[in-house]
Design a protein around this nucleic acid. Structure first.
Lengths: 111, 111
DNA sequence: CAAGCATATCGTACATCGACGATATACAGT
DNA sequence: ACTGTATATCGTCGATGTACGATATGCTTG
């Protein structure tokens, strides 16, 4: 993480483009589904949705994986936009990027 | 493909189990999303849904990939249950396994 | 059964994933 | 500034994904 202050990242709304050309559409969906294409990442997303926890450390505790591994999965989830991290003092609070998740749901639903 | 006659494979309805334990649930979703986690496979699924074509050869023609590569993607889609192949004379007619797709949609929607 | 076509599988090469421990970086408090 | 804590990144390794051409398999037809 480049550790840009959360307050600076305006977390721009997703590009909402409808009716994509097929190839681009496929790339989009593939990227989003790929983010969920690992049980650990699915569990992280579920965890964040359940609001039980948000801080990275808590996520690590809930998973049978090393901290660095969890961090890598979080990085992937961030890169695909499904998750955002906000700096909260010395820790990082993760949460679901609802617009991205909505996009994923929409794309899958419209299959 | 083991080339079992399509007429012999009863194509059993999907295991519908609700309220899975979280870990198993995550594995299920991860497996299904993983099937779509490649643009080529998304395009194949879209192609089959559009009903434009069904025969393997036609799929190959629509994709910028070698026949063997397409066949591998089809294998993955079959293994995850999203797609079924039926022998139609010397060729194979692929189609979407609607129950599996419905399961994927349900799992994603219930995120 | 021989030949030809459609599809699957094999073998290979390269890239990427997924895991870990070790280390670096950023922040809070003293 | 120094220390400790939390998180990210690096380096590595084995496993797997993705692509291809070549070959095998299975069906249909002559």
């Amino acid at each position: 993480m480049t550790r840009t202050k959360a307050s600076n990242s305006k977390c721009a709304a997703t590009t909402e483009k409808l009716a994509l050309p097929d190839v681009e559409w496929a790339d989009d969906l593939a990227k989003l589904t790929w983010a969920l294409a690992h049980p650990a990442r699915v569990r992280i997303v579920r965890l964040l949705l359940s609001r039980k926890s948000c801080v990275c450390g808590e996520i690590v505790e809930e998973m049978p994986l090393a901290q660095s591994t969890v961090s890598q999965h979080l990085k992937i989830l961030k890169e695909t936009g499904l998750v955002q991290g906000e700096i909260d003092g010395p820790r990082v609070c993760y949460c679901i990027h609802k617009a991205a998740l909505a996009k994923l749901k929409k794309l899958v639903a419209s299959l």
